[in-house]
């Protein structure tokens, strides 16, 4: 098991390297630069800036410098948020994004599995149909619609909850963004659970369990549920990585100081280092969660061997 983890982590290094390399050059080949503002800067200032940030050097040298620094954890200064290094910006924003994302993930997972299981057990009933219709709305309505609509109803019309901001970090501030973030994922979990539960309930070994007089509850919980969890566990990795690294849309709508916004802002402003920093962050999250899920998978399914 330990050797499996180590091997997987080792194989993540080249992946990470390729991701960073591709991102670096893609970013640089895009037209425009961080200091091409609406009103052009005087050439002298521009030159000074370029020199200060070493952007006047040949691309390959910039690349090597960046890689060298990145290995030591130095992702350089942000070009747009001039007083901060990228590491500082991410370090400041990440806790907010992760806290919000964690609650959203919990809500999506627990809610989705419960809803999906109920729908599967009452397949083709009215309950199934209505629950899954709501889930379909959840999948189809993007969070940039859900967010504003939630704000309109609960913050503006009913004034129950704050319209945005982090405030003191209490639950009141978290509820709306959490729902906006969790709803689409909850719906995905619900649909996945329903599908794989129905599949699992049809397998031969469920028939065996029923033929041996095991009560319905133990058939569902002990035998069907565990098998049905496998595809859900697989989806957990990309979902957790996406939720915990923050969402540009939700953080913008609810003015939350997380890292999700940096990514889009960085790309639009050609803030090379900031974008690179977020790319690395997301890639690391994806790799770590994939590994965690593989380990979990092995614990759930004895047929999977990690050796």
């Amino acid at each position: 098991m330990l050797s499996f983890v180590l091997r997987r982590l080792a194989s993540a290094v080249p992946t990470l390297f390729i991701v960073v390399t591709i991102s670096f050059f893609l970013m640089r080949f895009a037209p425009g630069g961080p200091f091409n503002l609406e009103r052009p800067l005087p050439p002298a200032t521009m030159e000074n800036l370029m020199r200060a940030y070493q952007l006047d050097q040949p691309l390959w040298r910039q690349y090597l410098t960046y890689m060298g620094n990145a290995v030591t954890g130095d992702f350089g200064p942000s070009y747009v948020y001039k007083d901060n290094s990228v590491a500082e910006l991410i370090g400041k924003g990440l806790p907010y994004s992760m806290e919000l994302g964690f609650y959203a993930l919990l809500l999506a997972l627990v809610g989705g599995v419960i809803v999906g299981t109920i729908a599967a057990l009452r397949q083709n009933s009215l309950l199934d149909f209505s629950v899954m219709s709501v889930a379909t709305i959840g999948v189809t309505v993007p969070n940039f619609v859900v967010g504003p609509v939630l704000t309109l109803i609960f913050a503006i019309m009913l004034s129950w909850l704050p319209a945005g901001g982090w405030g003191d970090g209490s639950l009141r501030f978290l509820i709306l963004p959490m729902i906006a973030l969790a709803l689409p994922q909850l719906a995905v979990f619900a649909r996945l659970t329903r599908g794989s539960m129905i599949e699992a309930l049809r397998t031969d070994h469920i028939r065996t369990a029923r033929a041996y007089g095991l009560p319905a509850r133990s058939v569902v919980v002990v035998h069907a549920m565990r098998g049905a969890m496998l595809p859900i566990v697989s989806y957990l990795a990309p979902c957790a990585a996406a939720l915990l690294t923050g969402s540009a849309v939700v953080e913008t709508i609810f003015t939350i100081p997380g890292v999700g916004r940096y990514f889009v802002l960085g790309a639009i402003n050609r803030d090379y280092t900031l974008v690179m920093g977020t790319v690395v962050l997301i890639a690391i999250f994806v790799i770590v969660f994939n590994l965690a899920v593989d380990i979990l998978y092995g614990l759930l399914d004895p047929r999977v061997r990690h050796d």
């Binding site: 992946t15 991701v19 893609l26 425009g32 990514f263 639009i268 977020t278 790319v279 790799i287």
Partner: peptide, 19 residues
């Protein structure tokens, strides 16, 4: 395909659109 997958998807789109 795997490598493309591990590139953050939004990043690809945003960069390509900007590009």
């Amino acid at each position: 395909v795997e490598i493309l997958y591990s590139l953050p998807f939004v990043f690809l789109v945003v960069v390509l659109v900007v590009f």
